[in-house]
Amino acid sequence: MSAHSHVDGQLPHEPEKATLEGRNKVLAFWLFLGGETVLFGTLFSAFLALRHQVGDGNPTSQELFQLPLVAAATFILLTSSLTSVFAIQAMHNNKVKAMINWLIVTVILGAGFLGLEIYEFYHYVHEGHGFTTSAFSSSFYTLVGFHGAHVAFGVLWIGLLIAQVFKKGLNTVTAPKIYVAGMYWHFIDVVWVFIFTVVYLMGKVG
């Protein structure tokens, strides 16, 4: 019953599912991601409905988007997903130190992605593509911005979890948290793959 019975290094193989609380957390998080899917699905639909409404004289997606920059952001985020997998693997092998290191790499990559995105947005606004410019711009910033906000939340969240593991070690309370944060990170990654395709690639094609 007690959450602390495994503290002294006898963690089970999948510590995130060792307790009912842990199993609940993992299940609920899957459900939450189901809801998030609808959330992003709706945002994508709104974007698809409005993406041609650029307005007269405003920059079009072809003129705005610079694929090399976006590709770099994509590469960074995909890599961070991989490093989060390594972190979970390390957790399953009870290698706390390796896990923390991989999580730190993940956070750094996430922050790098955010940096690129902020630069990108700044650049667009400079080009005359502001939030209020057109229906296209509003839906673009809302969709990509929602994703960006999710990344930012993830960076802070995983950062907080790293601090917790430092203090409390890995146990059946912290393990589910790390695990669901990993799920969250993968989800954000998948959403980005869709954004890359639907917003940027399709935007470049026209």
């Binding site: 709104a46 409905a49 409005l50 409404q53 650029v54 307005g55 939030f131 209020t132 410019t133 057109s134 229906a135 296209f136 711009s137 509003s138 839906s139 809302t142």
Partner: peptide, 15 residues
């Protein structure tokens, strides 16, 4: 001042 539903600026009320 976004334009999701503002028809004057490309928004779509049916959306």
């Amino acid at each position: 001042d976004a334009n999701f539903f503002n028809p004057d600026n490309g928004g779509n009320t049916v959306l």
